[in-house]
Amino acid sequence: MTTATPERCAALRTALLGLHRHLIELERREYEKLHGRQSAGEFLQVMAYAESMRWLEPLSRLIVMLDEALEPGNADATEAPQVVAGRVREMLKLEASAEADFSSHYQRHFHTSPELAMAHAAVIRALG
């Protein structure tokens, strides 16, 4: 992201939310194969407390940082989006050297899900 305008930040936020949603859907499918159908509330508890879902936390934290930066009057409104963009680029590199826990899970899903590949492309476009 070369210039952190509110519109570009909002576009990145939307793209990241779409990516996050796809990852959660993929994790839910895998979880339900092993543990049976879960209600929305039950799976929310799994997402919140299961160690196996902790790998999504870095992405979740970046979305929260971007949300906070988009709040009116935030002093970090210009710097935070640049930090988020840099971290997102590192996380989504699809290289073996990327952040180990996130990268291994992400790459496994990426190579099996065309929807995730499309969401990934949307994030890359939003980064500019």
Rank of each mutant, 00 (worst) to 15 (best):
A85M: 02
L26N: 03
R13W: 11
I63E: 07
T14A: 09
A15D: 02
E115H: 08
K33E: 12
L16Q: 03
T112N: 06
T5G: 05
P114F: 00
R13I: 00
A122K: 15
E68V: 00
H111C: 04
G128I: 01
L19Y: 12
Q45N: 15
E68D: 11
F102L: 06
L23E: 08
E90K: 09
A75E: 13
E51F: 14
K93H: 04
D101W: 14
R125I: 03
Q82G: 04
L19K: 08
A4S: 10
G18A: 06
L94C: 11
W55I: 11
A10W: 10
L26G: 11
Q38K: 12
I63F: 15
L66H: 02
G18W: 02
N74Q: 14
L16A: 06
T5E: 09
R125H: 09
T2H: 13
L59H: 10
E57C: 02
E71P: 00
A96R: 10
V84I: 09
E27W: 03
K93L: 08
P58F: 09
E32I: 03
G18V: 01
P6G: 05
T78G: 08
S103F: 00
K33I: 02
H111S: 07
S104C: 07
A80D: 01
A122Q: 11
H111D: 15
L23R: 05
W55R: 05
W55Y: 13
V88Q: 00
R89C: 01
E25C: 05
T3I: 08
T112H: 14
L56S: 11
V46W: 14
M1A: 14
L59W: 11
P114Q: 02
A10H: 15
E32K: 12
E7Q: 15
K33V: 07
A126D: 06
L23A: 04
E99C: 00
L62M: 13
M1I: 06
R87M: 06
H105N: 14
S39Q: 09
A119R: 10
M1C: 01
H22V: 15
P81M: 05
T78V: 15
A10Y: 15
G86N: 10
